[in-house]
Design a protein around this nucleic acid. Structure first.
Lengths: 218, 218
DNA sequence: TTATAAAATTAGGTAAACCTAATTTTATAA
DNA sequence: TTATAAAATTAGGTTTACCTAATTTTATAA
């Protein structure tokens, strides 16, 4: 079994490996994503390599082994299922659930994820639009196209969010954006790639390119 | 905030303080109840004293301060609420829920216990018959009379169990005893205090005195 | 190519929460 | 009361998961 901390590393490596533009997972990228010092990451890379959960090559960076991938997916599965539970059953807001799920995802017990999944009636996506892995590890492909990649003039449906921090989600809440919202891309400012958008056909609003990159569309 | 480990000590001290016959909570009693070495307990007693969560006097043993008591009760509250959830919503068996709740009880988040309690429709007792503390810390008195204290000839209702280990609960399952079961005390063997009982008016069975002490009656 | 910056690593250290073994204190029984 | 057993404590050690500071390696730009 993996410790709490090992699980967090596996999850973080998995997340990085899912990001479309990332080809090499570096020590510093992991450090950044976990808020740890790179020296600590080096320690953990050694530990996870010894446990054969990752492979490390100075050139190619970190890669999950099949077992590491399996373990990581089970944590992601639990995280996303708990998020559904917190939102749907306990009535938490969108921006509150991530942090609680970060703790709940580490609870290990035979069957817990499966029972939770059944209790929640087999949800396909979590409240942020991320696909929930099945018990066998299979999962739908994540949405990857962002609003920043959209074509001016087109209207898109918000399918998921890339950033799940409460500051971003609270901002979305203020803009009345949630999963399913229709957004029309009116203009892309050449100077700084800011986006002028219309949310649910309302008056145009301007948002940053960083914002646009964190909205995934379908 | 208290660490995982501090919380376990507080809970254990609270549990010991609730036991009717215990007047002094000793280093070794805590060590025993947590399965730790007494030397470790000494370390933690110092730590919790510094944090003003307990008071320690060589003569009087360990006592929770008002704050310590408050913290302990909140953990017990969460433990018992999660047990109800696991049994009623996820369909776990009686003997499976304790260990999972041992992990879930440490999840801290503003409101979590309150929301869970509301979702479960304000249960008064957990599946082992223990009262669930309210948000304000108030709780019904635990059942304290055990079957071993019963009078020969009388019939009692199983109100709670003292031991929540899976081995005990599986034994109860085998004997078809659960909360609410009627037990008639037929005879108490003088030699070793074994009890001859009739469960739901069935044929007499003999159980040990240890068994009897772990069945709480009303 | 070489200087410089960035990334990775090493060396050594800390805090938490355990442990064992040895010692001291306290309680119990002859 | 004194011997012995039990309980409590101290001293010192381990592991996990972090850290900082220094150094080495690798990448990038002049």
């Amino acid at each position: 079994m993996n410790t709490f901390s090992e699980e967090n590393y596996l999850k973080s490596i998995f997340r990085l490996s899912q990001m479309p533009d990332v080809k090499k997972i570096s020590t510093s990228a992991i450090a950044e994503s976990l808020g740890n010092n790179p020296a600590s990451v080096v320690d953990m890379i050694r530990k996870l390599s010894d446990k054969q959960l990752i492979e490390y090559d100075k050139k190619k960076g970190v890669k999950l082994t099949p077992q590491g991938q399996k373990d990581a997916i089970q944590i992601v599965r639990k995280h996303r299922l708990w998020e559904v539970f917190l939102l749907e059953k306990l009535g938490y807001r969108w921006d509150e659930i991530h942090d609680i799920a970060e703790e709940l995802e580490h609870i290990k017990h035979h069957d817990l994820a499966d029972r939770l999944e059944s209790f929640l009636e087999y949800p396909e996506y979590d409240p942020h639009g991320d696909p929930i892995p099945k018990a066998n590890g299979k999962m739908a492909k994540s949405f990857s196209a962002s609003l920043a990649d959209g074509k001016v003039g087109n209207t898109y449906r918000v399918a998921a969010v890339r950033d799940t921090s409460s500051s971003f989600l609270q901002y979305l809440h203020k803009l009345e954006i949630s999963i399913g919202t229709q957004i029309r891309l009116i203009e892309q400012i050449t100077f700084d790639q800011s986006l002028v958008i219309s949310i649910n056909n309302a008056e145009p609003t301007t948002v940053s390119s960083k914002f646009g990159e964190n909205i995934l569309i379908s």
